[in-house]
């Protein structure tokens, strides 16, 4: 008599234990912070989808389309050969001096617009003292073989070209 009842009791207990939804009933409130987190994550993905450019990451950690956009920009520099095409005399002088490795546009600035229309677009006059000091101002971090001066002591602010010929400097 007792045995079947015990068996039923066991089964009932097992059924109760197996009744996971019953156990989870009191964990229902935990779904709410999970939903808040998931909503936040979904919002993040939504914003990410909207603001990250479509071509980002195609070629690297940047926007691939930017390469085409950059390519479409008009070049600002004319290039050494273009300068030499018109200014052959000064190019020859420069080629025999210590500044032979310094490109024309390093001192005179980007010159594509000037090269396209030399009469209409002229170079602005150079601030020679500041320009020379940019490379030749004394600095203990520069190598010793590189010519450098304390410009204030050296020239007292006088234009460098009054003594030096900038295209073929002599020392």
């Amino acid at each position: 008599m007792g045995r079947p009842a015990t068996g039923r009791g066991r089964r009932a207990a097992a059924d109760e234990e197996a009744c996971v939804p019953g156990k989870l009933k009191h964990a229902g409130h935990l779904i709410r912070p999970a939903v808040v987190l998931l909503l936040g994550f979904a919002l993040f993905l939504l914003v990410r989808g909207a603001v990250v450019p479509a071509t980002f990451g195609e070629l690297g950690h940047y926007r691939a389309a930017s390469l085409d956009e950059i390519r479409q920009q008009a070049p600002a520099f004319a290039g050494q050969a273009v300068c030499a095409g018109c200014h052959a005399g000064v190019t020859a002088v420069r080629a025999s001096g210590k500044h032979r490795a310094v490109a024309c546009e390093a001192c005179h600035g980007p010159s594509a617009r000037h090269a396209a229309d030399p009469a209409a677009v002229r170079h602005a006059p150079l601030d020679v003292v500041a320009l020379c000091a940019g490379c030749h101002e004394k600095d203990s971090a520069k190598p010793k073989w590189f010519r450098q001066v304390e410009s204030k002591e050296h020239s007292g602010g006088a234009p460098c070209q009054s003594c030096h010929q900038p295209h073929k400097p002599e020392f």
Partner: peptide
């Protein structure tokens, strides 16, 4: 409360465990 006011002993036991 995030819309839940279940603070019965079972729910609190779950909170404690989590």
């Amino acid at each position: 409360t995030l819309g839940s006011d279940d603070i019965g002993p079972e729910a609190r036991a779950v909170d404690d465990k989590v």
